[in-house]
Amino acid sequence: MSDEIDEQVAEELAAADAVRPDAFDYAIRIRGLVNQFGDAVIHDGLDLDVRSGEILGVVGGSGTGKSVLMRSIIGLQAPAAGEIEVYGKTLDAIANEEESRDLRRRWGVMFQGGALFSTLSVAENIQVPLREYYPRTDQKLLDEIAAYKVAMVGLPPDAGPKYPAELSGGMVKRAGLARSLALDPALLFLDEPTAGLDPIGAAKFDELIRELADTMGLTVFLITHDLDSLYATCDRVAVLAEKKVIAVGTITELLATEHPWIQDYFNGPRGRAAAGCNIAAERHDRKS
């Protein structure tokens, strides 16, 4: 009996070694990605690198394929051409189930609407990935893990037993984040995490992401429309336009580029307001 368990443990350990996030400078490398639906070409020769440990914001107008890009990376959308490497592994869900399982354990994904399983409570939602990958973990530890994850994302103490339908919009987002963090991933995908939140809730959520990323050493792929989020959380920003990533860099670097869309985006009324607030806030921080 114990031999059998040892064997299982050994197998799990071998699997855990297959992907080694800390050994890579780049979490994600994309080369020449092409995505198309019928005749509509979404991405045409898109290149992008995401460095380990950074928070990369991805911006772009509606319909530029930000979500499609994320779906391609996590293997929900098979690209027409090009190569996507996550931690050195080319993801091809159909070709190699084992390897893609190892990869999936390394990342957490938070969908725009939270995508919580509506028939499970928040705590059970958090436990789904844990049970899938570590079925032998005992229930007491699972419950404790669920409880501290609920606490980590700033949900109230009574949120654990609640069902998604009983939660407010902001709480659903936090619960979604808790589930995506269940396996302590190295890489976190967030699809418009602050969309639909009030400014105060959104600001708190930005803070939470920054804090969690620092605490857990996460690499974050953050799709957003929210300029405040960009200023508050991102190390670098990638701009999607013309079916490619037209620029990647810090916001200061992007502001120096001449591209009209980037100029419009950051220097439009909203962009200036967000930048102004940010500068004011920094000044305030320096004073205190």
Partner: peptide, 21 residues
């Protein structure tokens, strides 16, 4: 330092956080 950050994040009391009804 990394471990300490994690420990600090988990340090507060979690006993009131419920999981089951």
């Amino acid at each position: 330092p990394a471990a300490q950050r994690l420990l600090d994040a988990l340090a507060s009391d979690k006993s009131e956080y419920r999981v089951h009804r």
